[in-house]
Nucleic acid binder design. Structure first.
Length: 385
RNA sequence: GGAGGGGUGCCGGAGUGGUUAAUCGGAGCAGACUGUAAAUCUGCCGCCUGAAAUGGCUGCGCAGGUUCGAAUCCUGCCCCCUCCA
């Protein structure tokens, strides 16, 4: 395939950069964020909503679509884009993340992963080759290799095992990759071990993938470790190829990621937290359910240009959330995604003006990230349940 | 007028002699959510004190009584519901 990515501007103070992805269904300005549409929809938002707020590419999921409605079904209905009414680029995850998130329902062998469907309990076998085939049949603009994402609690031996298997699987994916006009990205693993990360990035880079995912991060480790690992990965990957920090999407993490030289992000966080009532503001996240919003007759964030902020008061959003009114989910999703896209637009502009450092400084001057200890404690609770 | 059923914390509703400040829902007050088994999960939730632990107070319709001990047993009263007249 011809090069599908080019760097347009770099930042003199660090690895931050702006660029462009050229894909089968259009171009994507980077740094970019992909809303998550695992089941062929960004929950609560339609394609028109997504376009309006600045979405250029969405992420969908091979595992979920394979189970329901089935790859063949989507293929028969004209491919994923047509099926979901989205004519822009779609990146598909291979199902590698489900190897991690559905740990209780799967078994990993060298050949592949056996899943028990979370829907009906039936057994399914996914291999690196099948993951690529399915993504090609879906019509993905960017495909991801099948990887094994270790648990943050795993010991070094387990992490090394998973990382090395990921490398062998990456090789197999590469060999079975037919639709060379659409890029297939390798995925760097290595847990939170600097050595393993570095090795993993080096091995993947040597395989010649057109782009790279940094996987297995933001899964319960301390944020210092996350950024160390991103640094290790980026350090070993070729400058001219895109770097995709998988599963990261909190506003503060996106800004830090860009500062580390990341080009692509995706995360369910902006949309999921939106549905659960946590909305982004320039000051940090706010729980719309809180009593303080009950009578507040003003937009959630005065500086926000989204549909929600332009038309509705905080008091109204508060009311909708308390009533579990369906409109809330859409308005909240639109707002959080727009918040992220605006951040990206500003970051890109700053990079192109070679002024990223001051953009970053100003952002962290006002935006208060979630308390790290609270976050990790709740995360452990969630992973351990 | 007669017969039966019932009154529990903001609401619903368990509990029928001690481990009950009182199961559990809901509401309320906060927190979390990062390649979506997530419109989900967690904590707090009588009053006063306290950061918390602790401590003190009040408490299962009302008033008495039995008992070492009562939301739970007894007596009287008030109120609500159903059926009969």
């Amino acid at each position: 395939m011809s090069e599908h990515f080019r760097v347009i501007g770099t930042s003199s103070g660090g690895p931050a950069r702006a660029g462009e992805l050229i894909l089968s269904h259009g171009r994507v300005q980077t740094p970019a964020f992909m809303p998550v549409a695992s089941q062929g929809t960004v929950k609560a938002a339609g394609p028109d909503d997504l376009r309006t707020i600045g979405t250029e590419m969405v992420l969908s999921n091979t595992y979920h679509l394979y189970l329901r409605p089935g790859i063949q079904t989507i293929e028969g209905l004209g491919g994923l884009h047509r099926f979901m009414g989205w004519n822009g680029p779609v990146l598909t995850d291979s199902g590698g993340y489900q190897v991690f998130s559905l740990a209780r329902l799967r078994q990993v062998t060298e050949e592949g992963v056996t899943f028990r469907s979370h829907i009906d309990g039936s057994e399914h076998f996914l291999t690196p080759e099948l993951a690529v085939e399915y993504q090609e049949r879906l019509g993905s603009d960017i495909m991801m290799v099948l990887d094994e994402c270790p648990m943050s609690t795993d010991d070094v031996v387990r992490v090394r095992e998973a990382t090395e298997r990921t490398h062998r699987w990456a090789e197999r994916c590469l060999r079975s990759w037919r639709k060379r006009e659409d890029p297939l990205y390798g995925i760097v693993q290595g847990g939170v071990s600097s050595g393993l990360r570095r090795d993993s990035a080096r091995v993947l880079a040597s395989m010649g993938f057109p782009g790279f995912g940094l996987g297995g991060l933001s899964l319960g480790e301390a944020s210092q470790q996350t950024w160390d690992m991103v640094g290790e990965g980026v350090g070993q990957l070729p400058q001219e190829k895109p770097r995709y920090l998988m599963g990261v999407g909190a506003p503060d993490d996106i800004v830090r990621g860009i500062a580390c030289g990341v080009d692509l992000f995706d995360s369910a966080l902006p949309t999921r937290t939106a549905r659960n009532g946590a909305l982004f503001t320039q000051w940090g996240r706010r729980n719309i359910k809180n009593d303080e919003f009950r009578l507040r007759d003003e937009p959630l964030d005065r500086t926000c240009d989204c549909y929600t902020c332009r038309h509705f008061s905080v008091a109204y959003l508060h009311h909708l959330f308390r009533c579990k009114e369906l409109l809330f989910y859409r308005l909240a999703t639109i707002h959080n995604l727009r918040f992220v896209f605006r951040l990206l637009e500003q970051a890109r502009e700053a990079i192109l003006k070679d002024d990223f450092a001051s953009f970053e400084r100003e952002f962290f001057n006002t935006y208060q990230p979630t308390n790290e200890e609270v976050r990790l404690e709740q995360k452990r609770r969630w992973l351990g349940r």
